[in-house]
């Protein structure tokens, strides 16, 4: 099981400092006991989340150039961009060699400080999957996935709170999603759905906000170890003071 930090791109911090601290964080994680459980070799080591902040594609490119051995994933949402802009980002990601993408629908602007912003939601993550894995929009040239449909590892962020989530997961499996990122809300997770995902040979990763973890990450991992997870993504707010550095 791999433990993966996820962090939003910086708003005020200089991006070069941000990158340096990110690499320090990855090195620190390697030194902790967490590295003993780090067997998810094909999973990313760090997830750069594009929300409101420095352009995440720029960060991915710069990190790849400077620290080529770091396996990076790019997380984005369906809220902020329409299909044209998302495809443009995917073309860029493909060119810079980022294969791991994590797509969520995204928090509605009404729940953010940008509550007057118009949300986009031109695609949902199934729509994105249709483009990447099923050739929807193949009438266009140079569509990412058109010639190499399996270029991207599509990680889909989903809830696991009710039967309808299982249905959505089944649809995502049908279109070829590669990974399922379960949005952890503190409630008990439906193990049957997790087992179903695993039976389809797909990876299951828990996405946990730092605030749910409490004081001990080890304890949190221990409590959830029976879920047969491939990884846990910890969404951190700060590279310097977070649940990893407090170990």
């Amino acid at each position: 099981m791999r433990i993966i930090p996820q962090i939003e791109t910086p708003v005020s911090e200089n991006y070069i400092n941000f990158e340096e601290n990110l690499i320090k964080l990855i090195d620190e994680i390697k030194k902790t006991e967490l590295s003993n459980i780090d067997t998810g070799q094909n999973l990313p080591q760090i997830i750069i989340e594009q929300n409101f902040g420095v352009n995440g594609l720029l960060l991915c490119k710069d990190l790849k150039d400077k620290y080529g051995n770091v396996n990076i994933a790019y997380a984005f949402n369906m809220r902020d961009k329409n299909r044209i802009s998302i495809l443009s980002d995917l073309i860029t990601l493909k060119q810079i060699g980022i294969k791991d993408i994590i797509a969520s629908e995204g928090l509605h602007p009404l729940k953010t400080v940008f509550n007057a912003a118009k949300p986009v939601y031109d695609l949902d993550i199934l729509g994105l999957g249709l483009i990447l894995k099923r050739g929807f929009m193949n009438y266009l040239e140079h569509i990412p996935g058109k010639d190499t449909q399996d270029f991207f590892n599509l990680g889909a962020v989903v809830a696991l709170s009710s039967a309808v989530d299982g249905l959505k997961i089944k649809k995502l499996i049908n279109i070829g999603a590669d990974r399922f990122i379960i949005n952890y809300t503190g409630k008990n997770l439906d193990e049957d759905i997790i087992n179903y995902i695993k039976s389809e040979k797909k990876e299951v990763i828990l996405l946990v906000k730092e605030s749910y973890i409490g004081n001990s990450l080890e304890n949190f991992i221990r409590e959830n170890v029976n879920l047969n997870l491939d990884g846990i993504i910890i969404k951190i707010l700060d590279e310097k003071t977070n649940v990893f550095t407090r170990q």
Partner: peptide, 20 residues
Amino acid sequence: CPKGLLNGPCEGHNGINCEV
């Protein structure tokens, strides 16, 4: 759906109620 999704639900609902 406040997000106007075709293929939902989103990751934010709690099993019963809307995230927004």
